[in-house]
Structures are given as structure tokens and as C-alpha cells.
Design a protein around this nucleic acid. Structure first.
Length: 429
DNA sequence: TTCTGAGGTCATTACGTAGC
DNA sequence: GCTACGTAATGACCTCAGAA
């Protein structure tokens, strides 16, 4: 039940296959690296693996690596959450010995069997499910799991009960779509203020209050009093999302728990147990500024007819790349991608709180200079996203622009823009 | 420096409506 | 009938100026 949403997405893949190739047999895995497998009527087998929102890059890569060294089905279907992670996954699977097809979960849910939504690691062509099934090998075997020691028959779940009376493991069946959307946003942006969460969701204060009431009753979120009222996932909420995505609950809580280390001490950032949550709430002014800017951007984008395709928090916005033999990274405050018809706009967000020295500005820009001197921006996204540096005053903005001008003399294509909030930044196409 | 009260902002509640 | 979401009213909380 805790993996209900993941199960729904994988069942959707199964229905696409069944449209072309009935009958078939489906098997779920509890602990194997595959999430599920499908055996077609002619004996060929397909493994399905899903990368969830909470799945970290490294553990997911290790999971795929373990798969290679074990029993392999005749083909693999990998579901990712967005286009960028699809590209990463395709790169990882480039040398895979069985036919592999990578799709985006949201596209899969709304697709029909004729829709071309699947991509192989090599080549950019998208193919439909019939073409996927034609390439599944006859040679392949599926991993086996020991049968359950004890089988629990399905129980009747009364979703009319108030959420505080529903067992935590059954909550995914009782939550409404708006509850899940809020839960994902709060998970992405821990310590977000109500007003910014409301603006990101695009709902009225009253609607947000209703949703928060449900999530609080389910004990999935927790209200924090740190520089005003904020909201974050409770330990139970972190566990819910981690179990849904088959990632480590313990590791997720070590990073994101907002529970106090010592309940006897006053609640402040130093007393927060999760390492990443502590870091974010220590710099609450910076965190709020980023949230506020993103809420402004999302609202303005909606008004101008843009669809927000991706809104990644720092933990998903970072990009790792190889530069002169060493692994380097950019670690922006957010990554935003929006679409309007055929137009696409995307940018990494860097928020600078205060005036900084020219040498510090150069240090801030250095990772981006390295990143954009490689082919990785285009490889990662399929196009070249911008870097948007937001500073709080025009003097700092002018200094930054001067520095960027100097850098462009040797690297003319560096796509960096400097903005002052609510001032010069406009959605350009 | 501390307290108080006015005014503003934001969250919550009750109830209603639209769409499926 | 259910879900999603809006409006209006209300209450809680925050900020800030002015008085003690």
C-alpha cells in the first residue's frame, strides 16, 4: 500500500503492453532491484524499474549496476520523473546488454499504446510500445524471490474515516491528488512559508488550509515556528515519500527530519536533527528569498501562459560533470523549466543575498564557467539552459554584469543573466 | 527598555458552486 | 454524489508607533 502511486504508474505500463500483446503475466518484487516484471505469452520477459522523486542519483545508479550483474530479463523499461533524469538514465544505460527503453512517468500515465514516448539509450528517436515489444529479446531470465512466509488477505479500507484514524501504511490510498501535490512540494522545499506554498500550488488560502488540515490530521506534515510559521514534512511524511520511491527511510530522515535533537532545548535551527533541513533553516532568510522568487516566477509564468514543466529543489538541481579529469559540480538554488507551445525556457537559479567582493563573485561563477565550457549542458537538457543570478541591489547587479562581460571576452556563449527581484527579470522567449 | 493598542496580514472555518 | 476550489467572515498573529 505504501508504494501505491508507484504501483499505479507501473500498472499503466502493463496496460500499454497488454493493448499490444495479451495475454501476459505480471510479477511484483518486494526486495529485488526490479520493481516488477512482465512475461509475455511467447515467453519473453520485461523488467520494469522506476526512479522516484526521492530516489537519489547514486543509489539509483547502484541499483541499475546491481541489476547488470544479476539475472537480466529480455528487455528493460525504466520510468523516470522528468526529461533530465531520462537523459541521465539513458547515459548510464548506454552499454547495457539488453534492450532498454526509458520513459517519463507522467507521459506514460496519459499515453496510449500508439504514442511515441519511449527512448533507447542511443539515438534520439522516440518509439511506441509496439516497437518496444518487437525489440524484446527471447533470451533473458527473471530474478526469483522467496515466497512470503505469511500471506495477508486484502482488507477493506474505509477511506471515509478521518485521516487521523487511518493507518499510516494506508494513507496513500486515502490522500487526494491535491494532498499528494502539497506533500511533494513540502518535501522539495522544507520549511516553506504558507504563502509561498499556496502561490506555488496556485490555490486560494482557504483551499491550502483545507489541504493542510488533512495532511496535519494524517501527521504527515509539521508546523514550525522559526522566523514565522513554516511547514515541513514530519518524520512520518518523510517516511511516506521514501517508501513510495523505494529509497532509504533512515537516510531520508537523517537529511530531512525537522524533529528536535533535544526536545528539552528551545526549537531553533541548531536543534534540528536532519542535516539538510538544518542547513536550510539556518539560512532561513536565503531560503525564504528563493521560495518567494520561485513563487513570483510560477505566478507570472501562469499569467503569461507558460506551463511549469519542472521545478527542482537544490538536491535535484545540481549537475555533476567531468572537467579536466576531475568530477566537478554546479549546485544551484533551483532549476526551473517551463514550456509554452514549442517554446521552452529553463534556468538555474543562484540567489546572492548581499553585496560580495569581485573575487567572491568570480568564485561563485567558476563552476558555471567550467560547466558551460563542456558539452554537458546540452547533453543534460537537450538545449542550453540559462543561469539566472538574482542579487538584491542594482549596485551588486552592475558589478556582476561587468564581471560577466569580462568573462564573455574568452567565453562568448556563457548564458548568464543578472536580475534584481521584481525588477529586471522577465520571462523571455 | 518595556508595554500597549491599532492596524495590517495571514490562516482557518463555514458555506456555496462548478464540473465530472 | 464527489472532488476541487472559491468567497466571506472571523480569529490569530505580527509589526510598529507611541506612552510610561
Amino acid at each position: 500500500m505504501e508504494r501505491l502511486d508507484a504501483v499505479a504508474a507501473i500498472y499503466r505500463v502493463a496496460t500499454l503492453i497488454a493493448d499490444w500483446f495479451p495475454p501476459m503475466r505480471m510479477k511484483w518484487y518486494r526486495a529485488a532491484d526490479l520493481d516488477a516484471s512482465i512475461t509475455l505469452g511467447d515467453g519473453r520477459s520485461i523488467g520494469i524499474i522506476r526512479q522516484g522523486q526521492m530516489s537519489d542519483r547514486s543509489p539509483f545508479a547502484k541499483r541499475l549496476g546491481r541489476l547488470r550483474h544479476g539475472m537480466m530479463p529480455g528487455g528493460l523499461i525504466v520510468l523516470t520523473q522528468d526529461e533530465i533524469r531520462r537523459r541521465h538514465t539513458r547515459r548510464m544505460m548506454y552499454t547495457e546488454r539488453v534492450p532498454t527503453f526509458v520513459g517519463i512517468e507522467s507521459e506514460t500515465i496519459f499515453a496510449g499504446p500508439d504514442d511515441r514516448i519511449w527512448q533507447m539509450p542511443s539515438g534520439n528517436a522516440k518509439i511506441d510500445m509496439a516497437a518496444v515489444l518487437r525489440q524484446i529479446s527471447r533470451f533473458g531470465s527473471l530474478p526469483a524471490e522467496a515466497p512470503l512466509m505469511k500471506v495477508y488477505p486484502p482488507i477493506h479500507l474505509n477511506t471515509d474515516l478521518s485521516l487521523d484514524r487511518i493507518s499510516p501504511r494506508h494513507l496513500p490510498a486515502a490522500f487526494h491528488p491535491a494532498d499528494k501535490r502539497a506533500l511533494d512540494l513540502i518535501g522539495d522545499w522544507p520549511g516553506i512559508k504558507y504563502i509561498n506554498l499556496r502561490r506555488l500550488m496556485g490555490v486560494s488560502p482557504s483551499r491550502l488550509s483545507q489541504v493542510m488540515g488533512r495532511l496535519k490530521a494524517a501527521k504527515a506534515v509539521q508546523q514550525l515556528h522559526l522566523d514565522g510559521r513554516r511547514i515541513a514534512l514530519s518524520n512520518a511524511g518523510v517516511g511516506l515519500l521514501a517508501r513510495r520511491d523505494r529509497s532509504s527511510v533512515g537516510a531520508a530522515r537523517q537529511r530531512w527530519s525537522v524533529m528536535p535533537v533535544d526536545p528539552a532545548l528551545p526549537y531553533d535551527w541548531e536543534n534540528i536533527s536532519g542535516s539538510r533541513a538544518r542547513q536550510l533553516l539556518r539560512n532561513s532568510e536565503h531560503t525564504d528569498a528563493v521560495h518567494r522568487f520561485l513563487a513570483d516566477t510560477v505566478e507570472r509564468a501562469r499569467d503569461e501562459g507558460w506551463e511549469i514543466v519542472q521545478l527542482d529543489p537544490p538536491q535535484r538541481a545540481s549537475r555533476y560533470f567531468s572537467y579536466q579529469g576531475a568530477v566537478r559540480a554546479i549546485n544551484p538554488d533551483a532549476f526551473v523549466m517551463m514550456r509554452r507551445g514549442r517554446e521552452v525556457k529553463a534556468f538555474f537559479l543562484e540567489w546572492e543575498r548581499r553585496a560580495i567582493r569581485p573575487s567572491t563573485m568570480r568564485e561563485r561563477l567558476a563552476p558555471y564557467i567550467r560547466y558551460y565550457s563542456t558539452d554537458r549542458p546540452r547533453d543534460d537538457h537537450g538545449f542550453t539552459p540559462e543561469v539566472l543570478i538574482v542579487v538584491e541591489d542594482e549596485v551588486t547587479a552592475a558589478n556582476f554584469r561587468q564581471l560577466v562581460k569580462q568573462i564573455r571576452s574568452s567565453q562568448p556563449q556563457l548564458p548568464i543573466d543578472i536580475a534584481v527581484p521584481l525588477g529586471s527579470f522577465r520571462l523571455r522567449c
